[in-house]
């Protein structure tokens, strides 16, 4: 239970950064922190204490050995790749904004849009 709460604290720290940052790069970093906390929470929910990693070469082993839940791991694998795609997209837009306005500050950009 402590681990879930620590994960939630990491999520809250990311959310705090997302809301108070004015720099686009810091906003991307906070978004990554939020993503990381959610991935970790999902994997923790699927963990079994005496389970083995879901890589088994012989079906006989499974008869008296628990295995860690493979479904959350698959979903998080997909989510990591999608998160990479979104992050690179946001960073590309950030570099275009910097080239046009000469700043990463979102307040200044909204002031300069004119």
């Amino acid at each position: 239970m402590t681990l879930y709460i620590l994960c939630f604290i990491l999520f809250l720290v990311g959310l705090y950064g997302l809301l108070i940052s004015r720099n686009i790069i810091k906003i991307v970093i906070s978004l990554t922190i939020v993503e990381i906390s959610i991935f970790l929470l999902l994997i923790m929910v699927g963990y079994i204490s005496d389970g083995i990693a879901p890589v088994v070469f012989d079906a006989q082993i499974l008869e008296n050995q628990a295995v860690v839940d493979p479904l959350p791991q698959t979903m998080v694998l997909t989510a990591i790749v999608i998160a990479l795609a979104t992050n690179s997209m946001i960073l590309t837009m950030a570099i275009r904004l910097y080239k046009k306005y000469g700043t990463f500050d979102v307040h200044e950009i909204s002031k300069l849009k004119g």
């Binding site: 994997i43 083995i52 890589v55 860690v68 791991q73 998080v76 990591i80 790749v81």
Partner: peptide
């Protein structure tokens, strides 16, 4: 947490 594939991808 016994997730080697995820570690590699991450």
């Amino acid at each position: 947490l016994k997730a080697p594939d995820l570690a590699i991808v991450q």
